[in-house]
Computed example of a mutant assay.
Amino acid sequence: MDFSQTVDSFTRRDWQGTTDGTVRFALVGLGWWTVDEAIPAIRDTDLCEVTVLVSRSQEKAQRFAEEADVPHATAGADFHDGDCADAYDAVYVATPNAYHLEYVQTAAELGKAVLCEKPMESTVERAERMVEVADDTGIPLMVAYRMHTEPAVRRARELVAGGTIGEPVQVYGNNSQSLLSLIDDPDQWRLDPDASGYGTSMMDLGIYPINTTRFILESDPVSVQAQMASTHEAFADVPDERSTATAVYEDGVHAAFTATQNAYEDTELKITGTEGQLTLSPAFHMDCELAVETDDRSFAAAADDVNEMTEEFDYFADRVLTGESMSADGDHGLYDMRVLEALHESAETGKTVTLE
Rank of each mutant, 00 (worst) to 15 (best):
K270A: 11
F235N: 00
A229L: 06
E241L: 03
A245S: 08
T267V: 11
Q261I: 00
S281V: 14
P221F: 08
D251Q: 15
Q277D: 06
M228Q: 14
T200V: 12
F257E: 04
F257R: 07
E289P: 00
L205M: 12
A256M: 11
L217Y: 08
A283G: 14
P209S: 05
L269K: 06
T213A: 10
R319I: 09
R319H: 15
E241W: 03
V248C: 00
A263S: 12
F284W: 09
L205T: 03
H254G: 05
P221C: 09
T244W: 13
T246D: 14
S196K: 01
E268L: 14
R319E: 06
V248Y: 00
E265Q: 15
G273L: 09
Y264R: 14
D251I: 07
G252A: 02
D194E: 15
D204G: 00
D220K: 13
Q261P: 00
T212K: 00
M309D: 05
A226D: 06
S223Y: 00
V248Q: 09
R214V: 14
A283I: 11
E312G: 04
I216K: 02
A300K: 15
S298W: 01
D314F: 09
M309L: 14
E275L: 06
D314I: 10
A291G: 05
V253P: 11
P193W: 03
T244S: 09
